[in-house]
């Protein structure tokens, strides 16, 4: 058995090698495994790590003709500009608000949907439900946004027609700042919950059936099966996805928000991503944009580390 032989030799006690010697020994011993890592490593090095050097322009007055390194250092000027911008506080508040509500509603929704769909015993109906809830994911936000505009139109939208038929005043949903964030959350739920449930359904299908059998023998009802078998089986997936998602906490969905927002509702609709697009990218202020992006990334990284630590404290699996 080659593997056990390798394991023995690699870990055999009494072989007192230096670091590099040990490294080279391991590299040669596991050479085929390391070879398999080459392409992923190259990919990450070229497309993920190398571009990180570009973050340095957040601290420079970036000018194309001088390049990244030739451009003048300006320290934290762009960060000061960002934080001093009168719109930024509002933008940050909106971003956090939408992010929190999205996390509260859109994260658990697919778990709940997966649990319920898993309970459906009629296969044709189960497939029908799955298909219906998946379909909206395949519509782009451009199409979905247009549908929302039509459905919620104060002139002749179906929702307002119903409101009007009930004798109530029509509501201009896309013109009142108070409605914007609920529209974002609800439309996200309707569009993406089905798709996001797939991974949980797939995980549920891997849970050992004997656990269910044992629980049934012990007298568990369906609710208890869900509570004590299915949910614990999903726990690792839930925690991993939660930690990964929290890394993108401040990325609240540029496409969706950009399409749904208008000047009437910017008070609650302007978020960091739309702010970066409008002030940074459209004005070719890439140094400023990078500063804003770096801030976004740092917040995400801190949140990931905190979430990972919290998970471990709760005896749940982390990602590191």
């Amino acid at each position: 058995m080659a593997t056990s032989a390798v394991s023995k030799s690699a870990g055999s006690p009494g072989r007192n090698r230096g670091f590099w010697a040990q490294f080279l020994f391991n590299a040669w011993t596991y050479r085929y495994l390391y070879l398999m890592l080459v392409l992923p490593f190259v990919f990450f090095a070229v497309f993920r790590f190398y571009p990180m050097w570009g973050n340095v322009i957040a601290f420079k007055k970036y000018q194309l003709m001088h390049g990244i390194w030739g451009s003048q250092w300006v320290g934290l000027k762009h960060f000061n500009t960002l934080f001093d911008d009168p719109a930024f506080l509002r933008v940050l508040r909106n971003t956090v608000s939408i992010a929190v509500f999205k996390m509260l509603f859109t994260f658990p929704a697919p778990i709940i949907l997966a649990l319920f769909v898993n309970e459906v015993r009629h296969m044709a109906y189960k497939r029908f439900v799955q298909t219906v809830v998946y379909v909206p994911h395949f519509l782009s936000w451009v199409i979905y946004g247009a549908i929302l505009y039509i459905v919620l139109s104060p002139a002749n939208g179906i929702v307002n027609n119903i409101i009007s038929s009930l004798g109530m005043e029509k509501v201009a949903f896309f013109q009142k700042p108070g409605y914007f964030q609920p529209i974002v959350i609800i439309s996200s739920l309707l569009k993406e919950t089905g798709w996001a449930a797939i991974i949980y359904l797939a995980t549920i299908s891997t849970i050992d059936l004997t656990l269910y059998e044992a629980a049934i023998i012990d007298g568990a009802n369906r609710w208890q099966l869900m509570r004590y078998v299915t949910l614990p089986g999903l726990a690792m997936t839930i925690v991993t996805l939660f930690i990964l998602q929290i890394g993108f906490f401040l990325n609240v969905g540029f496409e969706q928000i950009f399409i749904l927002q208008n000047n009437m509702v910017l008070t609650t609709a302007d978020v960091i991503e739309t702010f970066i697009y409008r002030v940074g990218i459209r004005q070719a202020r890439f140094d400023f944009t990078t500063a804003a992006g770096l801030f976004n990334g740092l917040v995400g990284m801190v949140l990931v580390l905190l979430a990972d630590r919290l998970a471990k404290r709760l005896d749940l699996p982390g990602i590191f």
Binding site: T81, P86, A172, N263, M264, L266, T267, D270, V279
Partner: peptide, 23 residues
């Protein structure tokens, strides 16, 4: 303009549309 115009433009666009719609 590069530094100030986008912010002024956004704020003004926001103000006039809200003013017209009476919000």
């Amino acid at each position: 303009e590069k530094e100030f115009w986008p912010t002024l433009q956004t704020r003004f666009g926001e103000f006039i549309s809200q003013a017209v719609a009476g919000t």
